[in-house]
Amino acid sequence: MKSVLLYVNDDTGLEARLQAALDITRATNGHLHCLRANPYNPQMAFDGVTGMSVVYDVAKLTKEADQRLRNDIESQLAEEDVSWHYEEVNASPARGLARHSALSDLMVLSSASGDKDNVLPLGILGDVLFNTNVPALVQPDHIKNFDAAGVAIVAWNGSFEAGNALRAAVPMLRLASSVHILTVDEDKDHDLPPLAASEYLSRHGITSEVHSMSAKKPSVQAVLLSTIDALKASYMVMGAYGHSRAREFLFGGVTRSLFKDCPVPLIVSH
């Protein structure tokens, strides 16, 4: 994770994203790219009475708010022992992140664990994951760190998406105190068995333990959450938004639910 892309926005999840990004950048001796994507520009408007006028108010207020935000972030980063730079672009958050992610190893976004009525984090996550090949760290608002040396769980269903997430997470899994591969038996065909994932990690010098669980509990989500609790996991790796119904282990609804309710950070890839 030598290049970490942080989504900068003045919201309830910013501090959690920033601290997690710093922890990962520090743990991997990488570089932090702070990206502020803002779609607001001065606009031309007709008021029907005085004719054409230039609407500066919104743009001026936005620019002032952006400058305050930048000053706050840069003042914090000046005290940190990581390499970083700050960039502002005129684009919607999802479009800005997608367009500037080509040379990133990981982007840091918020989960939808904060304001339950706020659909913006879910919208950004969906747009970014579908339109980039870059994995995302989905950080809950209440967790102000990322424990790279903690226990890691890999949610495995043998799918293309799960494989992408596993490969992307290798730099972090090398740092984990232990790695657990979790598969849930749902009587569905898996392209690759969990032992294939374990063998893949072993080629990178990573030892892992395989757990096969039953889906007889209320839901796959319940199995995942109970395992996180039982193993005291620091984070979980998983594929997101699979397309095939044979890959429903982490399809749509489960992905969406975990983005809202998972108590630990997620490293996800589509």
Rank of each mutant, 00 (worst) to 15 (best):
D57K: 10
N157G: 11
A215V: 05
L182S: 07
P263M: 12
V237P: 01
D72A: 13
L175E: 08
G253I: 10
G48M: 09
M236P: 01
K60P: 00
V82Q: 01
S113Q: 03
V264Q: 07
I24W: 01
L14V: 04
F249L: 15
A102L: 11
T183M: 06
A176T: 07
F46T: 07
H180W: 09
I143R: 14
T183R: 08
A148Q: 07
L175G: 00
V4S: 03
A240E: 05
P263V: 12
T207Q: 12
V220R: 10
Y56N: 12
G114V: 04
G205S: 05
Q43R: 13
S178M: 04
N41W: 02
E186H: 10
V210E: 10
A45H: 07
L5N: 04
A162Y: 05
I228M: 15
G163C: 12
Q67L: 12
N41L: 15
A149V: 01
N90V: 15
F130Q: 13
T207R: 10
M172L: 15
Q221D: 10
R68K: 12
D229Q: 15
T25E: 04
V220M: 07
I181P: 08
E15C: 01
V134Y: 00
H31A: 08
V179E: 08
M236R: 03
D185K: 13
E80D: 06
V210W: 07
M238C: 02
Y86T: 05
P121A: 04
F160M: 13
F259Y: 03
P121F: 01
A152G: 09
I124T: 11
D127W: 00
E88A: 11
K216T: 11
S159W: 09
D191R: 11
A78R: 12
V119W: 02
A78N: 13
R26S: 13
G126I: 02
Y86N: 05
V82M: 06
C34T: 04
F249Q: 13
F146Q: 09
N29C: 06
E80Y: 03
S212I: 14
L192V: 10
Q76Y: 10
D115S: 09
L250K: 02
N41Y: 11
D115A: 06
